[in-house]
Deep mutational scan, measured.
Amino acid sequence: MAEQVALSRTQVCGILREELFQGDAFHQSDTHIFIIMGASGDLAKKKIYPTIWWLFRDGLLPENTFIVGYARSRLTVADIRKQSEPFFKATPEEKLKLEDFFARNSYVAGQYDDAASYQRLNSHMNALHLGSQANRLFYLALPPTVYEAVTKNIHESCMSQIGWNRIIVEKPFGRDLQSSDRLSNHISSLFREDQIYRIDHYLGKEMVQNLMVLRFANRIFGPIWNRDNIACVILTFKEPFGTEGRGGYFDEFGIIRDVMQNHLLQMLCLVAMEKPASTNSDDVRDEKVKVLKCISEVQANNVVLGQYVGNPDGEGEATKGYLDDPTVPRGSTTATFAAVVLYVENERWDGVPFILRCGKALNERKAEVRLQFHDVAGDIFHQQCKRNELVIRVQPNEAVYTKMMTKKPGMFFNPEESELDLTYGNRYKNVKLPDAYERLILDVFCGSQMHFVRSDELREAWRIFTPLLHQIELEKPKPIPYIYGSRGPTEADELMKRVGFQYEGTYKWVNP
């Protein structure tokens, strides 16, 4: 592979701008107003304001973009700056750019259920340069409990009458099928589907988006991507930290609602779906819905739930269990780990287990898709061969690698495990991989909904998990304890083995 010439960040961002501006969906010269509902909250200060700053800094926003914060707290732009700027990672050389960014910011205080507050917000936006005809993007960085009041008031008082209007809704989209349907029906009564952007930030990850290209742009994968060759698929999300004093919020939802029903299920769809007619948003989402419709409700015998306990040999936070978090209700049975087996009941995947695993306070930070292939028929190497695996590593250190057998150097035919490896950090030294939120917010500006969740996708996802969630809430089974920093409950490994996964433990990928 030829040595790549190092590029400056300015040059890299210039390439990104060229890609972005050559499309006809990006209205570079139009006025846009980006409204952050819930501007005083954690999500706004840690993710949304920093993301908008990065896009502005790199010249990736339309030229005439204004940012308006809205929340109940009586704040000023200076207050917003004070709480969000520490997350910007701005350099001293960017000081003038930073001043320009905050000059485009404003803030309006108001209630979430008060019509007069929204009329005041609308008047404020109209007073901005060309504000009355601007395109408006409303980001709901809010708890779902206020979605209905907020969307109703936005629709009645704050819509642009000339430009387009788009609304970005953060997960969780309800707690179960019934609450999700209620919320979807409410929002759909106010906005068209092409105006609604239900954001799952995992769909903005580079390697998640790469799944489609790997599958449908490489001839070698087509013939082997089926039940005849693939023994099982494992989708993993692991965090090495616990709730760390923020367990009160987590306890309301648990690990299945927080990660599995959305992030992991979306990745499953991209692995299992048929080739779409095109890369058009609805063509892709149509195929994802077909996959979900082929999955039956989760069966309790295919589920393992766990909850982390303190590690007596650990240090600091590792010595504390979930129930030691003062914000967690006493005696909570909320799971911090889950392993679930699903089956896609169609011709391509009949009988292939899709194993979804996620948890907190585990032994490493990792998100990946792992396809394990069947054993080689007619073994001539005296059971020395391990199964081939194709691994798409989402985070950290984005990579695609194939675990395969090669001859060990020497005189004899002794096979050993090795890999074919594409590590993004080595291959793409001159490429700026956008943060997931950067990519998705740019998608909203461009009107691309491919990486957002459609209402029928959402409904099918909740259909699969709601009976299990209701059973857990009714019966309150005690989750299996696992030690902070471990791989999780051993019962999860036993479940995976029972459905056909072979864990060798003899080879570990190392970032080159």
Rank of each mutant, 00 (worst) to 15 (best):
I167W: 03
V146K: 09
G69E: 02
F21G: 07
F87Y: 13
V169F: 04
Q83N: 07
G131D: 13
G245V: 05
V108Q: 11
L190G: 05
D251Y: 00
E244L: 12
I199T: 09
Q11R: 13
T145C: 05
R246A: 03
L235A: 11
I48K: 02
V146S: 05
S40H: 02
I48D: 15
R72C: 02
L214R: 00
H27F: 07
L177E: 12
F221S: 08
E156D: 14
F26S: 08
K97A: 09
I224T: 10
K82Y: 05
F26Q: 15
D114M: 08
T10I: 14
H129C: 10
H124W: 09
K47D: 00
G14E: 14
Y139M: 06
G163I: 00
K95G: 13
E193N: 00
A149Q: 13
S132G: 11
Y49P: 01
L121R: 01
D228G: 13
V146I: 14
L235E: 00
S184F: 12
D42S: 05
D79R: 05
A115I: 14
I199Y: 04
D181T: 09
L128R: 13
G247T: 09
C13G: 12
I255E: 11
P172T: 00
A115N: 05
V77W: 15
K89P: 06
D200K: 01
L183H: 01
S132Y: 14
A71P: 01
D42K: 03
T151S: 09
M212A: 04
N185Y: 10
A2T: 15
D113K: 08
A149S: 15
S117R: 15
P144H: 01
N153W: 05
G38Q: 01
G245L: 09
S8C: 04
G163H: 14
D113R: 14
R227P: 03
L190S: 09
R246M: 03
L20M: 13
H27C: 01
G174F: 05
I33W: 06
A149V: 11
G110P: 02
E193P: 02
L121I: 09
A217L: 06
R136D: 03
V108D: 03
H201G: 01
I224V: 06
R257P: 06
S117H: 05
Q178K: 12
M207Q: 09
V169Q: 03
K82E: 04
M159A: 07
I162Y: 09
Y112E: 01
H201T: 03
Q111W: 14
Y197S: 00
H201N: 03
I162A: 11
I52Y: 10
K152W: 14
R227I: 03
F173Y: 13
E239C: 07
R81I: 14
S157V: 09
R215E: 04
V213D: 10
G254L: 01
L60N: 07
N165K: 07
I15H: 06
P223R: 05
G174I: 02
Q11Y: 11
S84H: 13
E63K: 11
H186M: 14
M159H: 10
R175I: 13
S132W: 13
T10G: 04
C232G: 14
S188V: 14
I35M: 10
F237I: 15
S179T: 15
H129N: 14
L96A: 15
E206L: 10
Y118I: 07
Q178G: 12
V108L: 07
R81N: 08
K171Y: 00
V108K: 13
W164S: 12
W54F: 09
L183Q: 01
D176P: 00
T51M: 13
V77A: 10
S184Q: 13
E18H: 15
A6V: 14
G247Q: 07
A231N: 10
D30F: 08
I168V: 12
F253H: 08
A71R: 01
G23I: 13
N64G: 05
E94V: 05
G14I: 10
I187H: 07
E63T: 08
K95P: 03
R246V: 01
V233Y: 02
L137V: 13
Q133D: 14
I256W: 02
A127F: 15
T236D: 08
P86K: 06
N135D: 10
L16I: 15
M125E: 01
G38N: 02
F253L: 01
A231G: 12
R219H: 06
W54C: 13
F138H: 07
I35H: 02
N126P: 02
T76M: 09
C158N: 06
I224H: 01
I187P: 01
Y139H: 05
I36K: 00
A217C: 11
L20A: 15
N64C: 09
E18C: 09
K47V: 00
N218S: 04
F216T: 04
D58V: 14
P86S: 10
L20W: 05
A109Y: 15
K46P: 02
G23P: 10
T65A: 12
F34R: 01
Y202D: 00
D194M: 08
T151C: 10
G174W: 15
A134F: 14
A217R: 04
D30E: 10
L55K: 03
L142D: 00
G247C: 04
R17S: 15
M207A: 06
F26N: 15
E19I: 15
N153M: 14
S73I: 03
I168W: 03
D200I: 02
D200V: 01
H124Y: 10
V150I: 11
Y107L: 05
K97W: 06
S117I: 07
P144T: 02
P50L: 07
H155N: 15
L16C: 05
Q161Y: 12
V169A: 12
L130H: 15
A25V: 14
N64E: 07
K89M: 15
F138M: 06
A141R: 00
D194Q: 15
S157W: 06
S106C: 11
A134V: 12
Q28W: 10
T243W: 01
M212K: 02
V12W: 14
I234N: 12
D176I: 03
G204V: 01
D194E: 07
N185M: 10
R219Y: 06
V146L: 15
G242E: 00
E244P: 14
R120P: 08
A44M: 04
A115R: 15
D228T: 07
Y107N: 08
L75S: 13
L235C: 09
M37H: 09
L190C: 12
D100S: 14
D194A: 08
L43Y: 02
S84Y: 11
I230Y: 04
Q119E: 15
G174C: 06
